[in-house]
Design a protein around this nucleic acid. Sequence first.
DNA 1: CTCATTTGTGAACAGTGTTCAAGTCATCAT
DNA 2: ATGATGACTTGAACACTGTTCACAAATGAG
Lengths: 206, 206
Amino acid sequence: MISKREARRETLRIALLEAAKARVAESGLARLRARDIAKDAGCALGALYNVYKSLDDLILHINSATLAQLNTKLNHAAANADTPQEKLVALARQYMTFAIDNNYLWSALFDHTMPENAPLPQWHLDEQAILFGHVVDPLAALKPDLDAAGLHTAARTLFAAVHGIVSISLREGSTTIPRETLDAQLTEFIITQVNGMKYACGEHQI
Amino acid sequence: MISKREARRETLRIALLEAAKARVAESGLARLRARDIAKDAGCALGALYNVYKSLDDLILHINSATLAQLNTKLNHAAANADTPQEKLVALARQYMTFAIDNNYLWSALFDHTMPENAPLPQWHLDEQAILFGHVVDPLAALKPDLDAAGLHTAARTLFAAVHGIVSISLREGSTTIPRETLDAQLTEFIITQVNGMKYACGEHQI
DNA sequence: CTCATTTGTGAACAGTGTTCAAGTCATCAT
DNA sequence: ATGATGACTTGAACACTGTTCACAAATGAG
């Protein structure tokens, strides 16, 4: 049996991932150090490179875990809302909440860049694309004239807009905008956007 | 006179800044190296630290120059449009164009983080705030009920939304979205947002 | 038990930003 | 003009990265 070796390897893999996640959550991606991770995981420096191809590879797995966590939260948010507009508001507010509660891990999703401009692996791009998917269903109800492709890009645009609002607000530090203000801005933004869609569909002619 | 010393110092200051800007524009912030800059500027490594406090300080000045450049472009865009809606569309499209044409320099504006989470100096925060200002005037015409403070946060929100759309589109590389699609999405987004504002103001009751 | 293979170890390597003792040069009082 | 003074320049050295690698230890098969 080779299970004992694989078990050890898998244990170390998880220990390193958890140690790295904790480091990032505590002090951010910029202060992540290979030696710190190895020490926290209780292994030698070189062992890290037997399990992960590089630090960037490990960070990719951190981000993968963060995306899965965020994904679960967004699923709940959409499920607990009724109308399409309420779903979009709930998704945006949940996104904001996650970004605030997991500031460093969330930032790592966008701060991390591959060396030499190497493209991100496909499996990770797929994970990112899932996020946009949450917006598709509510949007389909609001823009019934769009085909699948148009719906996808529209969902991505709306998602990106919300991301930008949250991103710029959090980047400037907590000194600038209190959370309630950001929350209100985000909600009003979504409602305005939805109203604009209704306007375009001719409902304003009633 | 101490002019010769100061002239030399100023010449070196500019040479270092230009060399660093060229390096960033060519290969991005992540590949910026103090030794490369010094070599390009024709001085020794240590001389860089007589003129700039650190590499981060130099990068701050790069970003300052980029912000000024972007600011000029946005001024032109707003001046050449008539209605508030057209101004907002023109601003968004010019923002996109600048981001595409100056990809690495534009990315550096947001990729750069101070070490130890030190706050950005006030003079640089002020420069960033000017960007939001472009949105204020057109927005004031569309939301006449807002006071100055509300107008400022609303302008920031709209700017952030546009930034997010451009940012996420460019981050994934040119493989995903062609420029025309992004342009169309951006324009439609602004129009939808403006329609939503009109809707809220009751114009739809006509 | 023996041996081949995989895995763990931490010193060594190449490459960072930053500093600093020593040499060099511009400035200015004499 | 000349020497003294103080700022500037220099590039070697330092502290700290991620990554590699020869060697040691542990594991699995015969």
